Simulated assay, not measured.
Amino acid sequence: MPHEKPLLRFGVIADPQYADLPPWLEMNRYYANSLDKLRQAIGVLNGEDLSFVVTLGDLIDRGWESYDPVLAVYQGLRHESFLMPGNHDFFVAPTQLGDVHKRLGMPAAWHDFARGGFRFVVIDGNEISLFSTPEGHPRHTLAQQRLKTLLAEGAINAKEWNGGISDEQFAWLEAVLARASAADEKVVVMGHYPLYPENEHNLWSAERLTDLFARSGNVIAYLNGHNHVGNLGRAGNTWYVNFKGMVDTEAENTFAVIEVFGDRIEIIGYGREESRTLAL
């Protein structure tokens, strides 16, 4: 149907990971080039009719001083912008760790909002990690314990550069999904870390969330970055879309526009990002 209008359109950016550093050639990461790629992406997205643009973490590679240039580029975005941190956004001085969410203009580390009849949920997979809190902090100690357990279990994602969520955040997420279900709202959850398919980049205890989504039945998609090569999976009613990392490659960009219809999600990929039709 050529004239069918989507219920909602929004933009997606993942892992610009900017820093004024030389490239890491082995990993094909060009940190300094991300500012130009971001400008280009924002130029394209500004020409689109969108409800908002979400950036799925890792705005910077490291260093508090990296925030100024990258956030200055976002000033040129005409749409509402939702930012969230990834693991690299906490590679700053220990005294600055508590200010990261505020620097990104977030109302809270995890939060939800409604747009176009859909419920959007931002989760914080950095909450229980070795990088979001200084040594000696209760959450840091909990992260050490969790990682130790995962390593003992031989978990593929038992990595220092991954993280997890607390029981408190899990209970909040469960309540948000239940409220959305009662209101007959379909849900899109967004975070930095992948949940599915199994991958070394996945959130610690990812299956706890995928089980929750399967039980809830109303989560149509989970969107993330972190694994720069990208990925796609489906479990239950939920599509799991891992967007490619902008920092990778010298000049090729990657970002997307998402259109939500009653029966499908259309991903319009730019640069290295693939275009896809995901049936609901």
Results as ranks from 00 to 15, higher is better:
Thr141Trp: 07
Asp36Pro: 03
Ser81Pro: 06
Ala32Tyr: 12
Asp49Glu: 14
Phe131Asp: 15
Ala251Val: 13
Asn162Ser: 14
Val187Tyr: 10
Ala279His: 13
Pro138Ala: 07
Pro134Arg: 01
Ala214Phe: 02
Ser166Tyr: 04
Ser34Phe: 02
Asn253Arg: 11
Glu4Lys: 12
Leu151Tyr: 07
Leu7Cys: 07
Leu38Glu: 01
Val100Pro: 04
Ala32Trp: 10
Ile156His: 13
Ser181Arg: 14
Lys102Leu: 10
Ile42Asn: 05
Leu77Asn: 12
Val260Cys: 02
Gln40Val: 01
Gln40Glu: 15
Ala72Asp: 14
Ile60Thr: 03
Ser66Asn: 05
Ile60Pro: 03
Val70Cys: 08
Ile265Arg: 09
Asn28Ala: 13
Leu232Trp: 11
Leu147Glu: 07
Ala171Asn: 04
Glu135Lys: 15
Trp64Cys: 08
Gly262Arg: 13
Leu150Gln: 04
Asn28Ser: 12
Gly136Ser: 07
Val257Ile: 11
Gly116Asn: 05
Val92Cys: 03
Ala251Cys: 11
Asn33Tyr: 00
Ala178Arg: 11
Glu48His: 11
Ser181Gly: 15
Leu25Thr: 14
Asn126Gly: 12
Thr149Arg: 11
Leu142Gln: 15
Leu59Pro: 06
Met190Gly: 01
Pro6Phe: 06
Ser81Leu: 15
Glu200Lys: 15
His226Lys: 00
Asp248Thr: 14
Leu21Tyr: 07
Leu209Glu: 09
Val247Ala: 10
Ala235Cys: 10
Glu185Cys: 01
Asn199Pro: 02
Gly125Asn: 03
Thr149Trp: 06
Tyr30Phe: 12
Val121Leu: 01
Glu127Leu: 11
Ile165Gln: 01
Glu274Ser: 13
Asn231His: 13
Lys37Gly: 00
Arg272Met: 12
Thr133Ala: 15
Asn157Leu: 00
Asp58Gln: 07
Asn28Lys: 14
Val92Asp: 02
Asn157Gln: 12
Leu50Glu: 09
Trp239Glu: 03
Gly98Asp: 14
Phe82Thr: 00
Val70Met: 08
Gly57Phe: 03
Glu174Ser: 13
Lys37Trp: 00
Glu153Gln: 13
Gly230Cys: 05
Leu177Asp: 04
Ser34Gly: 07
Ile60Met: 05
Leu173Asp: 02
Val122Gly: 03
Leu130Cys: 06
Trp110Phe: 15
Lys148Arg: 14
